[in-house]
Simulated scan of single mutants.
Amino acid sequence: MIDIYLAKSYKAIIIVLMAFLLLGGIGLSIQSWRVDHCQAEYQLLDAKFKTQVAESQALTEKAKVEAATKEKQWSEQQLKAEQNHNVKIKQVMADATRAQSTADRLSKQLDTAKSRVSTAPRETIIKYVNTSSDILQECIAEYRTLEEAADGHAVDVGRLSEGWPE
Rank of each mutant, 00 (worst) to 15 (best):
L160K: 13
H153P: 01
Q137H: 09
I126E: 14
H85I: 00
E55I: 06
S75A: 10
R144C: 06
E166I: 13
R144F: 07
D104M: 00
G152Y: 12
K127V: 04
Q91C: 07
T102N: 12
E147F: 11
I140F: 13
Y10M: 15
R116Y: 10
D3G: 12
T112G: 10
S56A: 03
K88P: 11
K64E: 15
A94D: 04
T124W: 15
W164E: 05
Q137N: 07
Q39E: 08
G24C: 04
G163H: 03
A113I: 06
L23P: 06
A96M: 08
V65M: 08
S133A: 12
I26D: 04
I125L: 01
D95R: 00
A54M: 02
E66D: 14
A54K: 02
K72D: 13
A94E: 04
S132M: 05
Y143G: 05
I140W: 05
A63K: 03
S107H: 08
E162Y: 06
E138K: 06
E138H: 04
L17T: 10
K11I: 15
L106R: 15
A81E: 15
T69L: 04
I26S: 12
K64C: 13
L17I: 13
K80A: 10
S75L: 12
Q83E: 14
S107Y: 06
Q52M: 05
D156G: 12
A40Y: 03
A150T: 05
A99L: 03
Y10R: 15
S29R: 08
Q83G: 10
W164I: 01
A96H: 09
L21H: 03
R144P: 00
I125K: 00
E162G: 06
I26R: 13
K62E: 04
R122K: 02
L22A: 15
K62L: 06
S107M: 14
A54L: 07
S9Y: 15
N86K: 12
G24F: 04
T102H: 10
D104R: 00
I135E: 12
E162P: 00
